[in-house]
Design a protein around this nucleic acid. Structure first.
Lengths: 353, 353
DNA sequence: GTATTTTCCGGAAACGTTTCCAGGAGATGT
DNA sequence: ACATCTCCTGGAAACGTTTCCGGAAAATAC
């Protein structure tokens, strides 16, 4: 029942010195060693720990950074958050998680709410972007770093990745391993990733050396396994010969890719023998899945780290000019596109040692 | 360049009324309609949004709740966090993520840091618990709810699950589907989950009707796929006949279970025909994996929701007595323990439609 | 019309901290 | 010995908000 928490004033009284000296002794400079010792002792006796709210009010800094995404449970965002936390925590910053909601309106609303000053900065990865959101971010009272589209042209600090180029890497890889009939399994086109990946696929298909026999596209309702499975079934059903006309599927996402693998198997096709599948994001899920997933890493953790670094510089005032960082996609080849022993006929896979 | 943010004082000046009235008009009661209208207008013109720091200082509430775990990336914790956020956000509470570190010392340190008052409450899921931690939690200046061990006896609000009983459910399920030679793949015993699951397995094995032919145990270094795979290899290598003496593996974790499946396959054993595998936690990973994983759900989301509800009641002062909630484990049977068509001999699995 | 209640408003204090400013004591230079 | 400088300390203001309290005005009761 040691009452409430001790305040700096009580420490000052106990030490028999002024409030100003007490504060200086604990934090700032310009205090004699005797004073420091005296105050430290008093603070220790009272179990004093400074109140961050009072501190924030005076300093006009909360030592908090918000991380806002549409879906906190998404593995990609989890990876980003972990990385962000790892960068920020050692600098004494806390991470506040928030959700943007699905729409640009709700995201804009969230950015506006920064006006109430509960964080010193924000890292946001909006699913969709529009003029209003861009405007709100520009006018935000604290630094905002966007993970997603490059927005340097709008004067917004951003870290992006070339996911379009990533799709290209996946397509070229499939061509290299001899696939010629390629299906593209994308998510909703009105999202930033969906749009970028469509662009990437279109670019790859219309590239000079592109040598595929056929190309099909299907869109999943959203970026989930279930939606991917449904869409993959549609994709495979749409081509002649029960889907055998397709020998590769490029999925816009690891989750979609796994949906595609499940759908293929349900149709009696084996992966990777009958149909090779590539994912994107290089998630733990894909690494662990069987067959392990060839996937284009978009460096989620790296993007998170980069964004955290930028926001840190910005809140510390070391604001050079607006940063537009980009981390390159990187193809990670695994089992889902590599047939090791020359496959016999038939759909048997896995097999004995 | 509209200068910094507008403050309540400026709104008051603009409206030509006192500061007190301005505050009342915006939040509290006891203001005439004319006053409210007038102040609202002034606030709107200035684009005023209240500063939460000043508010917190006065109100002695931050409207923030901390969620602290050892590993933010762990799917189980992610699920909890999502649930917690869903409960808290509608009530106007923000969620601050923190890490406890691996040791009880660092966790205790974190709980002590609550003294600086940056949150109104905390939900923590410590990997390990000791006397010092319990003591710190009891003395914490803000409500702390523990997810993990039941601590009602220590006067600590907690929400737990009977993971020991969950292991029992898994064992009985395996017996029911005809398995008789059971391996137990556990994680480190000095962790709360590891300890509980060992206890559960021991209990199940020594239960009256237990009718297995043999029982083996292996411990993984930690609760990861890689560690699970290594330990499963040891487990299978230790029994005669290249592991065929085992027809079931109970894993303490979905990740360990997946490691076990990979190890079994590498040894030419098929799952579930040769060896059935059960996991625990019922993660998305296990649901999506092939074969989908029979797993004991420990209701991560539900525990998160419960903890959030409790902490909400506590910070709002509706503190009855200390709560000790428990959510029951629930076995979810999937492919990894069910052989549908009577298996032929041989290790072929998956197979054509 | 007066007494009493209700309604509404403004002044001021308070939450806990940091920091500017001025002043006193001691050290240093000449 | 005096002027100057450095070092340290305490008083007080400030950050932005909410709310207690007293009082004036308005509403109600008789």
């Amino acid at each position: 029942m040691s009452s409430s928490r001790a305040t700096l004033i009580q420490v000052a009284e106990r030490a028999g010195v002024s409030l100003a000296s007490t504060s200086r002794a604990l934090h700032g400079s310009g205090a004699s060693v005797a004073m420091v010792e005296r105050v430290r002792a008093a603070a220790a006796e009272l179990g004093y720990s400074p109140d961050v709210t009072g501190r924030s009010l005076r300093l006009r800094r909360t030592f908090q950074i918000a991380f806002a995404v549409a879906d906190i449970g998404n593995p990609v965002y989890v990876e980003m958050m972990t990385a962000i936390h790892e960068v920020l925590a050692p600098h004494g910053y806390r991470v506040v998680v928030m959700t943007t909601g699905d729409t640009t309106a709700s995201t804009t609303e969230l950015v506006r709410s920064l006006g109430s000053g509960f964080v010193d900065g924000m890292i946001v990865s909006p699913l969709r972007t529009d003029e209003g959101l861009v405007h709100a971010i520009r006018r935000a009272p604290v630094p905002v770093v966007v993970i997603g589209r490059p927005l340097g042209a709008h004067g917004i600090d951003s870290v992006s990745t070339d996911s379009a180029g990533g799709v290209g890497q996946a397509v070229r890889h499939l061509l290299e391993v001899g696939r010629r009939r390629i299906g593209f399994l994308n998510g909703p086109l009105d999202t930033t990733p969906g749009e970028a990946r469509k662009r990437g696929f279109d670019d790859a298909v219309s590239a000079p050396g592109f040598a595929a026999e056929r190309v099909d596209v299907a869109l999943a309702e959203d970026f989930t396994v279930a939606a991917g499975m449904a869409a993959a079934h549609r994709l495979l059903a749409a081509v002649p010969d029960g889907g055998r006309q397709l020998d590769a599927v490029v999925a816009a996402n690891d989750l979609l890719a796994i949906g595609a693998i499940r759908a293929a198997r349900e149709r009696g096709l084996s992966v990777p023998e009958d149909v090779a599948v590539t994912g994107m994001d290089d998630t733990e899920l894909g690494r662990v899945f069987q067959p392990s997933l060839t996937s284009v890493s978009l460096g989620s953790a790296e993007r998170g780290r980069a964004a955290a670094g930028i926001v840190l510089r910005l809140v510390d005032g070391d604001a050079d000019r607006t940063q537009e960082t980009s981390v390159g996609p990187r193809l990670v080849v695994r089992e889902s596109t590599t047939v090791l022993p020359r496959p016999r006929s038939g759909a048997v896979h896995g097999g004995a040692v």
